[in-house]
């Protein structure tokens, strides 16, 4: 076994704020975010790259922060759930959608769902239901059955596009 690897300095912009820290190379990004930065909105679910609860936005890509080392994110720009609200502190369209459409029950998957949906809507501002379901396939929810999560994202897309959200007939 190798001797303890030396810590290295990393710096990145998280939710618009320049941050830095001293990490071991093996420190996972999610641990840096939760423990060094004390931003505990990003959740650790499965720790095996399946559940998506730890999803953050890294340089315009949705990534599972349990499967990226903090040193790999050196110099990057990151958005976590704490950076999703509007600048004035009001709920963003996505957050409002999850509230209005009951897009959560226990709430554990919600930070990952919202950060993933944030990137999805950046890439595809007007997704179909099928595109939403395909786009959030890397995020697991054990409560809702996804129905209301899909509606929440549809609500947010409609709000961002300035159209009225029409709930599909059941």
């Amino acid at each position: 076994m190798a001797t303890q690897a030396k810590k290295t300095q990393v710096s990145m912009k998280v939710n618009g704020v320049e941050v830095e820290g001293l990490v071991e190379p093996r420190t996972l990004l999610v641990h840096f975010i939760r423990e060094n930065l004390q931003l505990t909105g990003t959740h650790i679910g499965c720790e095996t790259t399946h559940c998506g609860a730890c999803t953050v936005d890294l340089d315009g890509r949705s990534v599972k922060s349990c499967t990226v080392f903090a040193v790999q994110a050196d110099g990057s720009e990151i958005i976590t759930i704490e950076g999703i609200a509007n600048a004035d502190g009001t709920l963003s369209a996505l957050q409002e959608g999850f509230r209005m459409m009951h897009g959560l029950q226990c709430g554990f998957c919600t930070p990952g769902m919202i950060t993933r949906a944030h990137r999805l809507l950046q890439e595809n501002p007007n997704p179909s239901e099928e595109e939403i379901r395909f786009g959030i396939a890397g995020n697991l929810c054990r409560c809702t059955g996804y129905q209301n999560i899909v509606k929440a994202i549809q609500y947010a897309a409609a709000k961002i596009n300035g159209t009225e959200y029409q709930e599909a007939a059941e």
């Binding site: 190798a2 303890q4 030396k6 290295t8 720790e47 349990c66």
Partner: peptide, 11 residues
């Protein structure tokens, strides 16, 4: 679920 220690290189 913490990997063993390693040294990181970025050529």
């Amino acid at each position: 679920m913490i990997p063993g220690p390693f040294t990181y290189h970025r050529p």
